[in-house]
């Protein structure tokens, strides 16, 4: 295989899908929902950030041990404009219905940024369904007055990544898709400090892992401790030298702790690292 082949594969992975992921569609709650799926094992449902569904190297790594199902939430990407959903709890209820329709009974749930808030609502609404909750740079609690995600591609890349120059080029976004998505995100993202959500978080049953990159400039990593204060079984981990898109920037570090948490929940704090040098 030539270098060009691998370069092309990496480029394609960045803009579209990794080889292992297959596209599927499901009808639920009046929406036609696209999803990407790969892997075998316990189910891990993923809800994307405000930029829409974009597979990262972390998805590939997780698919080695999990059946990863990454949904495209209604109104994102090439899906029809979503004028129906009026709030984040409604979006969460839709995504729960989508999972139901796929026959997913109990599953691990991962939400990224904007999708982190959707995942929190879903876990509150369907406590019996969610085995464990992973929040990647969640946007559910933001500093007061936080600006919505920028739309200019270069500025967006600077806010997503600590090292944008190390990322494959972003796929071009159709201005019509961007406009419809921004409208939806603006409607659903809710206030920076969402009292409705925060007053319910102490009832959250699922073991929860919150992960922030230490160089996240979209949502300051200093927001992490609020989740730990509000959610009964919540753990906070910083991924050093990563920006907002942790699964893209530090995929191995991210997946190592996520997989460990999914397997062991709060016992993930017990080290299993073998330090014997010469047995």
């Amino acid at each position: 295989m030539s270098f060009a082949y691998f370069a092309l594969k990496r480029f394609l992975k960045g803009i579209e899908v990794s080889e292992a992921f297959r596209e599927g569609f499901v009808e639920a709650d009046g929406f036609h929902i696209r999803y990407m799926e790969a892997g075998k094992g316990p189910v891990l449902v993923h809800l994307h950030g405000a930029g829409g569904l974009r597979l990262s190297p972390a998805h590939d790594l997780l698919a080695r041990n999990y059946r990863v199902i990454a949904f495209e939430m209604p109104g994102f990407g090439a899906s029809a404009e979503n004028t129906k959903t009026q709030s984040m709890p409604e979006l969460a209820a839709t995504m729960a219905a989508v999972a139901d329709k796929l026959g997913l009974d109990r599953y691990n749930l991962m939400g990224t940024s904007f999708g982190g808030k959707t995942a929190l609502w879903l876990a509150l609404q369907q406590p019996e369904r969610v085995l464990a909750l992973i929040l990647e740079a969640p946007a559910a609690i933001r500093p007061e007055g936080a600006a919505p995600p920028p739309s200019a591609p270069e500025e967006l890349a600077r806010r997503l990544y600590a090292y944008p120059e190390r990322q494959p080029p972003s796929p071009p976004v159709d201005p019509a898709v961007r406009a419809k998505t921004q409208k939806l995100v603006a409607r659903l993202r809710g206030p920076d400090r969402d009292r409705d959500l925060e007053t319910q978080l102490p009832q959250l049953k699922a073991a929860t892992l919150v992960v922030f990159g230490t160089r996240d400039t979209m949502i300051p990593p200093e927001m992490g401790h609020f989740y730990r204060e509000l959610i009964p079984n919540c753990h906070l981990v910083f991924v050093y030298d990563s920006g907002h898109a942790i699964g893209a920037e530090r995929p191995e570090a991210f997946v190592e702790v996520v997989a460990d948490f999914l397997e062991r929940h709060e016992a993930f704090v017990i080290s299993r690292t073998n330090t014997v040098i010469h047995p």
Binding site: E229, Y240, A253, V257, S271
Partner: peptide, 20 residues
């Protein structure tokens, strides 16, 4: 971070890893 973070945290570094 250890001096400023108010809640217990884990650290996924390149060279250092701590869970609590």
């Amino acid at each position: 971070k250890a001096w400023t973070e108010p809640q217990p945290f884990g650290w996924q570094g390149r060279y250092f890893q701590y869970r609590t």
